[in-house]
Simulated scan of single mutants.
Amino acid sequence: MVTRQIVEMNQYFTNDTKPGFIVLYEKMITNEISFTPHGIQEGRTEIEEYVKILKDNEGNTLTEIESYRLDNNYQSLEDLLYSIKQLNKEFFKVKEMAV
């Protein structure tokens, strides 16, 4: 059996996303456990970090639009957040230029 626990969660770009969209960071611990005659035995433990783009369905539910895993493709969380903003411009407000 696999268990997952969210141990950290943060919302990013709260003032930059279009209404109804949320950018959420989640850090979770995944454990493989098994039941033996001697009790519960823990197997492999893994820490996973994700940044997800969610759509708020009028306050009732959230739908996952995109999910990005923080792994070797990104040097840091900041690098991943920058990439998300560049790759998903349709979910972000357009900054108006001053005249």
Score class of each variant (00 low, 15 high):
4 R>W: 12
79 D>P: 00
3 T>Q: 03
27 K>T: 04
8 E>I: 00
30 T>H: 15
15 N>D: 12
19 P>K: 00
88 N>L: 09
66 E>H: 14
63 T>W: 03
80 L>D: 07
2 V>A: 06
64 E>I: 14
41 Q>G: 12
39 G>N: 03
79 D>G: 13
23 V>Y: 02
93 K>A: 11
53 I>K: 01
8 E>F: 06
20 G>H: 07
18 K>M: 00
70 L>V: 10
28 M>C: 05
43 G>M: 12
64 E>C: 09
41 Q>L: 03
64 E>S: 07
86 Q>I: 15
15 N>A: 08
51 V>L: 00
15 N>K: 00
34 S>T: 15
39 G>Y: 12
79 D>T: 12
46 E>W: 01
94 V>T: 15
7 V>F: 08
38 H>K: 14
11 Q>Y: 01
14 T>H: 05
25 Y>I: 06
24 L>H: 01
26 E>F: 06
63 T>K: 13
51 V>G: 04
19 P>N: 00
15 N>L: 03
65 I>Q: 13
96 E>S: 14
2 V>N: 03
30 T>S: 07
29 I>W: 09
32 E>P: 00
27 K>L: 00
29 I>T: 02
94 V>Y: 01
38 H>L: 11
92 F>W: 02
1 M>N: 08
5 Q>R: 15
4 R>M: 00
92 F>H: 10
90 E>A: 12
66 E>A: 06
92 F>A: 08
53 I>L: 08
28 M>F: 01
43 G>K: 12
52 K>Q: 01
75 Q>R: 15
78 E>M: 07
41 Q>S: 15
52 K>G: 13
93 K>F: 11
67 S>L: 08
55 K>H: 02
13 F>Y: 02
19 P>Y: 00
57 N>R: 14
34 S>Y: 11
45 T>L: 07
72 N>Y: 15
7 V>R: 09
69 R>M: 07
37 P>D: 09
65 I>A: 07
8 E>H: 13
67 S>I: 14
56 D>Q: 11
32 E>C: 03
40 I>R: 12
97 M>C: 06
18 K>T: 10
5 Q>T: 08
59 G>L: 06
85 K>C: 09
66 E>L: 06
31 N>W: 10
17 T>R: 01
32 E>T: 15
58 E>A: 15
95 K>E: 15
91 F>Y: 15
13 F>K: 05
47 I>W: 04
38 H>E: 13
65 I>H: 10
31 N>V: 13
63 T>M: 06
49 E>S: 11
25 Y>S: 05
63 T>P: 07
31 N>K: 14
60 N>R: 13
9 M>W: 00
7 V>I: 15
6 I>E: 04
27 K>Y: 02
85 K>H: 13
31 N>L: 03
95 K>R: 04
97 M>F: 05
28 M>Q: 07
24 L>W: 00
